[in-house]
Amino acid sequence: MLNKKNIDKEAVQTSVSEETVFKVKRLKKVYEMGEVKVHALRGVDLELYSGEIIVLLGPSGSGKSTLLNILGGLDTATEGYVEYRGKDITKATEKELTDYRRYHVGFVFQFYNLIPSLTALENVSVVTEIAKNPMKPEDALSIVGLGERLGHFPSQLSGGEQQRIAIARAIAKNPEVLLCDEPTGALDSSTGIVVLEALERVNRELGTATIIITHNVDIAGMANRVIHLSNGLISEITKNPVRKPPRELHW
């Protein structure tokens, strides 16, 4: 285990390049709920390298989703800045943010957020239709092992299958980063592992930098680095010398 002070850039695993995808500095986020102010992030510094898998760990309410949302351009920061490939996205216009999300980021949500009135294939097409250099939706679905269920509606699929469609949807545009907010939160462990395997495979085959939020410590084993968040601050960052394949995880 490494202390926060001892983060060593040289120490990243060989499969991870030196290229910085995100550089986060003094990031703060305050939600104003009427009278009360909620300090969701209190000054986060972070770097993310391409090809890396990061697991964000932390108790509920520690600010994980907030951080991920800001990274993904879904939400805006209150203070500090977030650089994506050298460009400060905290100063981006609405249009630039939309383009950023459209062309660079893939998102996976805890509750899948599929469009219930669209089939698996169409749910993926929704994204590929507006992307620049997407895969064929069918291919994205085969990567997550759902090549056979193209015509099914979300309500006809299990939770794990729905989440894998969500992953297919997220990767289909060939994004540079994949942001997953508790992708296994609503799933039992064996289904969760299938989903994590899909994520790991995408990372391995496409080199997509991936952040996975979880409050499940066991999942941390599949990461290059594990970032612990607590009360809006990074409490520690640990590094795994070797990534465990998801099928070896248990919880």
Partner: peptide, 16 residues
Amino acid sequence: REQIAALKAFGYSTLD
């Protein structure tokens, strides 16, 4: 609401 959020997360603009 959530479908809208997802669509926006994938890069659909407010106008879309």
